[in-house]
Design a protein around this nucleic acid. Structure first.
Length: 288
DNA sequence: CGAATGACCTGTGAGC
DNA sequence: TGCTCACAGGTCATTC
């Protein structure tokens, strides 16, 4: 499901409820997500306060008092949703609609938000590619899952010069180089396709041949990610915000999932191809 | 080292 | 209606 813009959208949605909230009880419904839960996770978290919520690449980081952090990855189909106290007392249409997916509610945090009242934070993940880990704050940077991540595409580090340097000598296609989390962390299938279209670059072009197009690629990445965050991410099959609303960036796709449709720039026909078993969408006419 | 492939899971939609 | 197949936003392990 989620690439960087979706995870950032989740972070922003959860922050008002989570920051300062006290975890009253943690309920683990099934232990077999991608990684098994750490030993005693529920007991270790009970009674502690969440101090802040941050993000690194596609990871959500819930900072817990006393120097630990919950590392949450949503895999392909994970989502967090917030249920407020009043929803439980009188289950409304909202929960009724979504009751079908509750079979995949794997984790529930019962909490007292800093603003008072009661709330439940529920992790739902049909495919169970996501996971939760508990890591000490001091070890976050060196954690194997985070240590080798590349730069964030939202910051000043992303530049044509950076791309040119990291892509130098690479014969791998641009599509794969951009998917490589060790170079830029947070891009996934959708936004790589969209960024390449915006830059007018073919996904098949060897990354090392980026040359003087590196600046425009860096710009395209920055812009597409910013626009997607602004739009609240893309809601394809099952991405919903913590409050149940939808992102709308999917309406802004130029190529993704548009095989056979006309290119908005040159009216060529959008093609679908495969890189590493993932679909790639591009316009063969204006992406070189 | 890099590149290609399969594996992990379940749900959904298309086509027959 | 019901079956089968392809495919889905991600990452990791294994094999050259």
């Amino acid at each position: 499901m989620p690439e960087l813009p979706e995870v950032e959208t989740v972070r922003r949605g959860l922050e008002p409820v989570l920051a300062g909230a006290r975890l009253e009880r943690v309920i683990l419904h099934r232990p077999d997500l991608r990684f098994p839960f750490p030993e005693g996770l529920a007991e270790r978290l009970a009674g502690r306060r969440i101090t802040a919520l941050s993000r690194r690449a596609k990871y959500l980081i819930m900072h817990v008092e006393d120097g630990e952090a919950i590392l949450s990855h949503l895999g392909m189909s994970g989502s967090w949703r917030v249920e407020h106290g009043e929803d439980r007392a009188a289950p409304g249409a909202f929960h009724h609609e979504r009751s079908k997916s509750s079979a995949h509610d794997h984790v529930v945090f019962e909490l007292t938000p800093g603003t008072g009242g009661r709330a439940r934070l529920v992790y739902n993940d049909p495919r169970r590619f996501g996971f939760l880990l508990l890591v000490s704050e001091g070890e976050l940077g060196e954690h194997p899952l985070l240590a080798h991540l590349g730069i964030e595409p939202t910051g000043n580090e992303l530049s044509g010069a950076y791309l040119a340097e990291r892509f130098a000598g690479k014969r791998a296609p641009l599509k794969l180089a951009l998917m490589d989390q060790r170079i830029i962390a947070g891009l996934g299938n959708i936004y790589v396709c969209e960024a390449l279209w915006r830059a007018g670059l073919s996904p098949d072009r060897p990354a090392g041949t980026i040359g003087d197009r590196a600046d425009s690629l860096a710009d395209a990445i920055r812009v597409v990610i910013a626009e997607a965050i602004e739009a609240g991410g893309s809601s394809l099959r099952d991405f919903i915000h913590a409050d149940g609303t939808l992102g709308y960036f999917q309406h802004g796709f130029r190529v993704y999932d548009r095989e056979g449709a006309p290119c908005p720039r040159c009216h060529g026909t959008i093609a679908r191809s495969i890189h590493s078993n993932r679909s790639t969408f591009h316009c063969p006419r204006c992406q070189e």
